[in-house]
């Protein structure tokens, strides 16, 4: 094992796949000599050259649309959008082009592209740079959607995403970039569609994503002192969703709390709640609860941003109310 940051783990995944497959390339704003807005691409341009680590103009539509065309013609592009909030600029390319091309062409067109982009608040980036927009893409048939919470997951999932023959929206949480964790030395991948049980427990199930996996684990530590054992499940890939692992856990604990950073209304958390109520209702001993952000734009002031984001304490309160 080695100790890497989330950002370093992502960079290793890209470097290894680029070494292995000459059709893999990166494009995005300031991904070259600047090293990426959050330093994820780092020195890759020195290692692979400007042809394969392409600095683009400010041109989100052409970045995503270009990735679609490149993917259809024998390349494996990794496109980067500097913030997930900028996805709105390129949304036709995400939802009408990348997602639908295979289906519309009756299975002819293969679109093996990854769209990497950071989500999340917590750094005072305000409303147009902090969105968690999982819900925009989770409901679009034809896309796969990933949001890792640890360096090891980030690396293994990104490698799978690059090798996947379909468009993958690869969300990264910007507060996690500098967090460290153990990463296997050897070559490995983590399949899309496989949840990970981050902590086992019998009293309640928390399904958490991204930054909220950490908060759920903190909540679990605190509750353990009171004798309450939480099971923390990280779906890791939102589409395809590992329903089996979630439902088995809910069946064991009888309680389901879903904790994500998204605004609550129409969220991925809502989708998980719907799945549990459709397929696991009779396992439940208490209502399903969602712990999500307020239904507002992300505010700027630290005080307001903290009021907007759910805290570890909010997760603890939700768990206790369901017991």
């Amino acid at each position: 094992m080695k100790n890497l940051t989330y950002a370093e783990a992502l960079r290793e995944a890209m470097a290894e796949e680029m070494e292995k497959d000459s059709s893999v390339f990166i494009m995005g704003e300031d991904v070259g000599v600047f090293g990426g807005c959050f330093g994820v691409t780092g020195d890759l341009v020195q290692r692979f050259g400007e042809d394969r680590v392409r600095d683009t103009p400010i041109t989100e539509t052409a970045i995503v649309g270009g990735a679609v065309g490149a993917a259809m013609t024998g390349s494996r592009p990794i496109a980067e959008l500097m913030f997930a909030s900028f996805m709105g600029v390129a949304m036709d390319e995400v939802f009408n082009q990348a997602a639908k091309m295979c289906y519309m062409t009756g299975g002819q067109a293969k679109v093996p592209m990854v769209l990497r982009t950071p989500v999340g608040g917590g750094i005072g980036a305000a409303a147009q740079h902090s969105v968690c927009n999982e819900s925009w893409v989770v409901g679009i048939p034809g896309l796969k959607v990933v949001l890792p919470s640890t360096p090891a997951d980030a690396k293994g999932l990104l490698k799978s995403a690059i090798r996947d023959d379909n468009p993958v929206i690869f969300f990264e949480h910007k507060v996690l970039y500098e967090t460290k964790g153990e990463v296997p030395e050897e070559d490995y991948t983590i399949p899309l569609g496989k949840a990970d049980i981050k902590r086992e427990g019998d009293d309640a199930t928390i399904i958490a994503t991204g930054m909220f996996v950490r908060k759920a684990l903190e909540a679990a530590d605190q509750l353990a002192k009171e004798g309450i054992e939480l099971e923390v499940i990280d779906p890791r890939s939102l589409v395809p969703l590992d329903k089996e692992t979630i439902l088995a856990s809910v069946d064991k604990t009888g309680r389901a709390i879903i904790a994500t950073e998204e605004t609550k209304r129409g969220s991925f958390a809502s989708e998980v709640a719907a799945v549990i109520s459709e397929e696991g209702l009779y396992s439940l001993e208490a209502p399903i609860l969602r712990v999500c952000s307020e239904d507002t734009p992300v505010p700027f002031s630290t005080v307001l941003e903290q009021a907007y984001l759910p805290s570890t304490e909010d997760i603890i309160t939700a768990v206790k109310s369901s017991l």
Binding site: S22, S23, F25, M27, D51, R52, R54, T61, A62, V64, G65, G66, A67, V68, G69, A70, A71, M72, T73, G74, S75, P77, D92, E93, N96, Q97
Partner: peptide
């Protein structure tokens, strides 16, 4: 919508 896709096939020729 075809324009950015054309950029992509152009990039593939280079890659």
């Amino acid at each position: 919508a075809g324009l950015p896709i054309a950029a992509g096939s152009g990039i593939s020729s280079q890659i």
